[in-house]
Amino acid sequence: MEQNWLFIGVFVAIAGVFPLLPIVIARILAPSKPNHIKLETYECGMETVGDTWVQFKVQYYIYGLVFLIFDIETAFLYPWAVAYGVLPMFAVIEGVIFILILAGGLFYAWRKGALEWS
């Protein structure tokens, strides 16, 4: 197990070096003549008006919440799926009930109009 995760750890480090390499090479090769106008925020030539941090729709947040619930649900279901082969029928039904309760949650969110993009 430790060897497996050592591989992942080394992979993260090397996968970080690979994209860093072209950026460094580009820094050496590419010209660098910055000026104020070039470095302005790009809005197709128009000057930006006001702050970037405009207030966002609350809808993004609601989708995030629904996603979080399902994310945790599936995290519970993965060990159940791995153990599936040795589980008796009633244990499988327990998992199904677990899914159905959350499907009820999805149905509730749907009926309440939380899934509408308006």
């Binding site: 609601i62 619930i69 649900e73 009930i97 677990f98 509730y108 969110a109």
Partner: peptide, 12 residues
């Protein structure tokens, strides 16, 4: 699972 459902309802 019920707790997650309650969390979803409450959050919404």
């Amino acid at each position: 699972s019920v707790l997650l459902l309650a969390a979803l309802v409450g959050a919404l």
